[in-house]
Design a protein around this nucleic acid. Sequence first.
DNA 1: TAGATTGTTAATCGATTAACAATC
DNA 2: TAGATTGTTAATCGATTAACAATC
Lengths: 212, 212
Amino acid sequence: MSKQSNVVPRPTLRRLAMYLTHMQQLREKGVRWVLSQEMAEALCLSSSTVRQDLTHLDFSGTSRRGYDTEQLAQVLHKELGADQITHMAVVGAGNLGRALVLHGELEKHGLIVVGLFDSDERSVGKKVAGLTVEPVKKLPAVIRNRHITVGIMAVPGSSAQQVANTLVAAGVRGLLNLAPARVCVPKHIALVEASIIPSLQELVHLMRATDR
Amino acid sequence: MSKQSNVVPRPTLRRLAMYLTHMQQLREKGVRWVLSQEMAEALCLSSSTVRQDLTHLDFSGTSRRGYDTEQLAQVLHKELGADQITHMAVVGAGNLGRALVLHGELEKHGLIVVGLFDSDERSVGKKVAGLTVEPVKKLPAVIRNRHITVGIMAVPGSSAQQVANTLVAAGVRGLLNLAPARVCVPKHIALVEASIIPSLQELVHLMRATDR
DNA sequence: TAGATTGTTAATCGATTAACAATC
DNA sequence: TAGATTGTTAATCGATTAACAATC
């Protein structure tokens, strides 16, 4: 009945998102029940990890039958905040920033881009899928007026920290950093890194390492 | 002289990429030496973590002076594979896939997109920055002919596993998964996940959790 | 009931942090 | 030399895995 202690470890959190997409796929196929062992196989995990992860949810399985896919999908949906609308701002109207605005999948998860900013005068005023690129100096006012709680940074590495500071000062409570540079934020601000270049560098190293 | 044991832990690897961009920024400013403590502050780490990480490199600092920024940049550059050209294929010519092809920064790191594929007939033949979108069925031949070693998956979650299988069968040795679904690959294939939607779900959860 | 699967507890593994000896 | 910083070793922390009792 009452929620678990509520501090979901980060690695678990990432897997919860995977469980949700997997449940949605199973439900489309009409599968009602799934075993921890089956989930583990589908997602390259151990069944132990799956069961441990699910203890963080306000949810239980049934011995010998496994987990109700619909119920699990619902609980995960809520746990990952998809039951509420989140307003986001994208900073950086380059190729990546524009791609995000055009990305239709976000809305399915309650995520809406309601602001697009760029520091380059020349791109200000351009339209991207119904949104107009606005200058970064308008950011603080827009963040407040449109109730934006998440900032997505799609800027060059050299300006990443400065943009992060601006967003935090404007009042966002979470940052997704897509820039190829680490940023520092106060610890009450949630930060997730998903930069592509560092990920590719990691990948290339792993490939070399297995060579030898 | 001889390389360290050469199994760089993943968390360390991610930080090595950060150290490299930081070194490049310092060098632009003309900074010759940097202390582990200074690096730690700039990147929100502990100096202990920085020193531990650097032990994985074929490189040493100097007591009381710190690390030579140029030398460290060089060693990191090499360690992360930027000294060699890596040919990559992007699968999925949607907004994200096209943004990657147009992303000018990749080449600075020795990363070149030499193939762009899509399963949708309608986008086949279109040009994106000098590359022509090719049908997925040509993938195996192209991977071989153009010496492609990395596959970047920018496809819907529902087709992610199938695309991964195709890429692996075609002979790539590393995969960057940008699709919102976990994929399984044989263990000799390097895999890095950098999907945006799961990252945003993680972020939204973290924001909620700190609320309470 | 018997048997298989969950939920949970304990053991293992790996990464981070702390502490300090070696070094410049 | 004295003092501060690196490199390294040991202690701590956290996540994963293994094992098993509870449950259906």
